[in-house]
Amino acid sequence: MREDIPVIRVRNDGGDEVTRDGIVLCFFMRRSHGEIAPAVWRALQAYRRAIPHQALGWYGSDDGDTLPLDDQGWENIRWQTLERPRTNACIIELEENCSGASVYHFDYHGRNLDSPLYSGDEGATSGMAFSFPTEYLLAHGPAHLRALAQELGRELPFSFGYASLAFVAPRGTWYAARRELLGPLRRYLGLDLYHLSETSGLIGAGARGAYWLTFLGQPLLGQLGGTEALRQRLSFSEVTFEPMEDERLLLTLGEWPDAIDTEKGGVPPQYRALARLLEPYLREEGGDWPPMNREFMHRWFRRLCQRAGAQSG
C-alpha cells in the first residue's frame, strides 16, 4: 500500500545524495540497436510526454562531458538514436540533474549484436531504463504508472522487463554509497538495485527476478510453459495477467508495488511463487566491490526465493 513505501536518502562520504527511493522501469531486448532504433525513440518520446516538462535537463556526450539538454541537445540525441552510422554500441544517458541523485533519468545501452565484439555472446542485449520519483507514483496512482509501462512495453520487442520500487541512482552511482545501502537493502526486499549497463550486458534471454510489474517475452514465457500454465501456478487473487502482442505477457503482483519491509512481515506469497519459477533463469551480476561481492549479490538475487522467515545476509 502507498503508506508502506519508504522514504530513503543515501549520501556518499562527501555528503552528496547519490541514491533515493523511486520507481524504475527496465526492458531488455535480444535485438541489435539498428533493428529497434525507431521503437527506442518512440518510447523515449512517450516517457517525455508523461513526465514534467524539462524534467530531463542534461545528457552525456561522447567525450564524457555532461551538456544541457536544450533543443540542440535533443537534436543530437535524435541523431544518435536514429541516424548515426552503426557502431558496436549506442549509449544514451539523460538526467534531471548534472550532479546528485536524479529522480528522472533515461538510460539506453543499444548493442550491435551482429558485430564481431558480440559474436557468440548469449548474454548481450539492448536495454533501457526509465526512472521516476516515488512522488510521481503517489500523485498519479499505480494504475497510471502501469498503463504507462504497458505503453512503453508495446513499442519494444522485450524478452524481459519489469517495474519496481527501487534505489534510484542513474548509471549505478549507488556504488559510491554501497556500505550505507546495506541496511536498507536487507530491510526492503522489494526495492530494486539496478545497473543497466551491467544487466543489459549479461541477462540475455533470462530474467532478473520477480517484480510488481513483470514483463515476460520470448523465449522466456515459452520456457515457463506459457500464459495458461502461469495462471495455474500463480493462482493468487492479487495477480493479474495481461497478454500482449507477439506472445508476451504482463504480470501484475498487486495493486501497489510492495517494498517488502522485513520489519513488518515476510515476502508476499505471489512474489515468492514467481521468484521461484524464475530462479532457474536468473542471470546474476556483481563484481568485487566489498561488501557487495559476488557472494552477497548471489544471495540478494535470491532473496525472494527463500523460505518464510529467512533473509539474505
Rank of each mutant, 00 (worst) to 15 (best):
L182Y: 02
L220H: 02
R187F: 01
A177H: 12
Y271K: 13
E151W: 01
T173E: 15
K264E: 10
A205M: 02
P219L: 09
V267I: 15
H144Q: 15
E245R: 10
R231G: 04
E263K: 04
L220N: 05
G172F: 08
E242A: 14
T214H: 12
R272V: 00
L250C: 12
A207D: 04
S197R: 13
L189C: 06
A210H: 02
T173Q: 15
V168L: 09
L165T: 12
Q218E: 15
R233N: 06
W212I: 07
L249C: 08
H144C: 13
L224S: 05
Y162A: 09
E155Y: 08
E242H: 15
R208L: 05
L253N: 08
A210E: 02
S164C: 11
D261M: 03
A177F: 03
L181I: 06
R276Q: 11
R179P: 11
D261G: 02
W256D: 03
G266W: 02
R154Q: 14
L185T: 06
K264I: 04
A259H: 07
V168M: 11
G206P: 00
P269V: 04
L193Q: 12
G161N: 05
Y194L: 12
A163N: 04
I260T: 09
S197W: 03
E238T: 08
T173G: 15
R178Q: 11
Y194C: 08
A229T: 06
A273T: 11
